[in-house]
Design a protein around this nucleic acid. Sequence first.
RNA 1: GGACCCGUGGUGUAGCCCGGUUAACACGUCUCCCUGUCACGGAGAAGAUCGAGGGUUCAAAUCCCUUCGGGUCCG
Length: 365
Amino acid sequence: MRFEIIKKNNKNKLRIGKLRTSHGLIDTPCFMPIGTRAAVKNLTSDELEKIGAEIILSNTYHLAQRPGADIIKKAGGLHKFMNWHSPILTDSGGFQVFSLSKMRKISDEGVRFQSEIDGREIFLTPERAVDIQLKLGSDIIMVLDECPPWPCDYEYAERSMELTLKWAERSKKYFDKKTKNMSQGKRSLIFGIVQGSVYKDLREKCAKKLVDMNFDGYAIGGVSVGESFKDKIKVIKCVIPFLPENKPRYIMGVGRPEEIVKFAQEGMDMCDCVIPTREARHGRLYIYNKTFAINKKFYKTINITNSCFKKYMRPLDTRCGCYACENYSRAYIHHLLKVNESLGLRLASIHNIYFYIKLMEYLRK
RNA sequence: GGACCCGUGGUGUAGCCCGGUUAACACGUCUCCCUGUCACGGAGAAGAUCGAGGGUUCAAAUCCCUUCGGGUCCG
């Protein structure tokens, strides 16, 4: 078994488990820091490891463009390339179908992007996306999907979901063919992605069909594109009953700490989000409140660039065990960000990722 | 002694020649936003009665005169 549930919470649907990948075990529920371009921005792999990150996420589209999958393959794979020895999940480029929607065209065959860097064409098909991810040496491969925008009318959502299903089928078929001779322990995992926007019947249909294809895990995509928290919960609640108990569930691209907690309590096992790293760079830092009560307001945020921290000589959080809090004051980090010193970005990122990683540890207790 | 240049938000400048609605821009300051990263990014706010005084004009940062401050060149 690649995924094992160790303990279930009797008050809610939270489940504590372990997922076995070709680069070791990860504890779930887990949060995956994002390293789109083979780096979690401003951090070394060593720092990430010390923070306690067990798995990171990287990106097919961006790496295919620069430096190119072949170069990473030549380097000995993404792990070796970036000196990260724990698992890596790679997103397929499906999110770029949404985020770079101005410069791409979708057809049944795949997605044609016009590079935002040099204008050249990048053609992703389900097969190519799998191929690239295999070259990268990804531990968890995501199928190419179309992440539809929000709001999204029913007709579009349906068409889009059907396309995502077709692509999922092609991806799985291609993946199976390419990996049939690999031993179970070495083989990457491949996850399907449930789409269908906020429409219950579409989500349901998509989930059922994907489960029939027998993926190693199932993701819920198409969230965190502008819809409300309630919509996200609604989607999760309608999808989960159709997902197998013994496979990991991944909610893509979320979220705020309180959202992650709720989703884990609904039975989600994995999540990822740019929030801790991006907001760190922009000065918003996460601080736990005195009593860690998971259902109440358990944290606050501060904007470290605010002038009130100019002379604040104590750490961001005196109870936090991160490198930034153990060694530096708010005033120092305030100063670094104000003068655009990259160390500021680094310390802020360390703190926020630590916050998220600790949150998952609390959840697993 | 003579000729000339420059004084505009905290800083650096544009606008002046050819006068016309709430004086523009960059940086700085302040605040907010960020959800499978086009992202050290984005949005907004505060802040100058244009060195001072007078004149011309319906109207002056803009034209004229005086004056103060800073600078350049010639003797």
